[in-house]
Design a protein around this nucleic acid. Structure first.
Lengths: 219, 219
DNA sequence: GGATGTGAACTATTTCACAGCC
DNA sequence: GGCTGTGAAATAGTTCACATCC
């Protein structure tokens, strides 16, 4: 088996995949490394290196063929990956996710939401059924879902995470502002919005106080 | 001026700050590097190195004094950083943010939301006033806000980003699934939920198919 | 004894720079 | 001529390991 790709590379590959999809929709068929680099905000050398690591090939004269690039990237990034997701917590974040993923172009399907508030359960939210938390285990038992979005308040996040893990979930996108303890075969990706906002604030503070040039000078 | 801290370090420092805050609330006054490491899910050496880079000092016998650690971290991470934010787009994500930041313990204050839907504007959402997008420029003119959360559909994100930048915004937390083009003195932090979910899916697929041991064996 | 602080070694990642190809 | 593919160099980041201090 070939060595796993470094995480930073994987993240950029996802970006390329998105950019390339848009280019294809616009009707473009080929792209140069520096062109893709511009759109993905990095360097041509980096793009070539990344694509190489992913096993993509271009041709010296014409650049990369977008369609085969996408095929290859999809294979590397998406082959065998779960696409079925449940959402825990039907607050605003949970609802936002469901709205977002009910758009037709989505690659994930949200099978169900779970909430402890009985006013929310029973009836579906935007065609997505919402069940009481107590139904979680039987649902997981029956549906073998491997991915979950955890969008609940911090204090209950760990307990729910444990239940997800016991139910066979192997990937959690966690919006709760706590660090979850999970066994090593489960991957948690934290989306701590507060922390991101702090980071933005920190970096905005650092960036040089520059004269505001016309926006048209910026790529 | 001392050299800027590496981004990965800064991110970990935010985590330490959070962990330490919780510890302080619990009444703990001192912490060892390996202890902090456990709670932040990394190694003792890393913790010591990070704290050192941030200019923190501990003492060999007793570990680190949490209160002075927090003081120092706050100084490094938060001194001079903007705390006032506006939210563009009062969809579910926008609402979620506002709900989240209206909790009393928050460090950011959301001054206003903006939306193009006139059914949402005029009346406040949870005490946060919501204005029509047309009011953006005068609002920025008057309030000198430097941070914005962009939670609008992809197709309109770039235009709104331009308007934010022209209005003096220097940091954007972007939920729209596009790469924004901004001048170099503006920092954009992307929170592309779809991409994060893809990443979780990718990593969950990779993680070894491990025997499920008792959850109690896991920290 | 048991921590911290830190140079030095190591590992990972990015960038350079150029041979080879179209 | 211009672009890809890729060793090699450079840089960034992490971990080791031990002198030092409480």
């Amino acid at each position: 088996m070939k060595p796993a790709l470094p995480i930073p590379t994987v993240e950029r590959l996802f970006v390329y995949h998105k950019v390339l999809t848009n280019l294809l929709i616009e009707g473009t068929t080929h792209v140069f490394s520096y062109d893709l680099a511009n759109r993905a905000r990095n360097t041509a050398a980096q793009v070539r290196r990344d694509l190489m690591s992913a096993g993509c090939v271009g041709s010296s004269g014409k650049g990369y063929d977008i369609r085969s690039l996408l095929d290859r990237l999809s294979e590397v990034l998406e082959h065998g990956a779960s696409r079925q997701v449940i959402v825990i917590g039907l607050g605003n974040i949970g609802k936002g996710l469901i709205s977002y993923f009910s758009s037709p172009n989505n690659e994930f399907s949200i099978l169900a939401a779970f909430d402890r508030d009985t006013r929310k359960t029973g009836k579906p939210f935007q065609e997505c059924p919402c069940f009481p938390i107590a139904d979680l285990e039987p649902f997981l038992e029956k549906n073998k879902v491997e991915l979950a979005v955890l969008a609940v308040p911090g204090p209950v996040a760990q307990v729910l995470s444990d239940r997800l893990v016991m139910g066979g979930v192997r990937g959690i996108l966690n919006f709760a502002p706590v660090r979850l303890a999970v066994p090593k075969w489960v991957h948690v990706e934290d989306n701590h919005i507060t922390m991101m906002l702090k980071k933005v604030s920190y970096l905005a503070k650092l960036s040089p106080d520059q004269v505001k040039e016309s926006l048209t000078t910026v790529g």
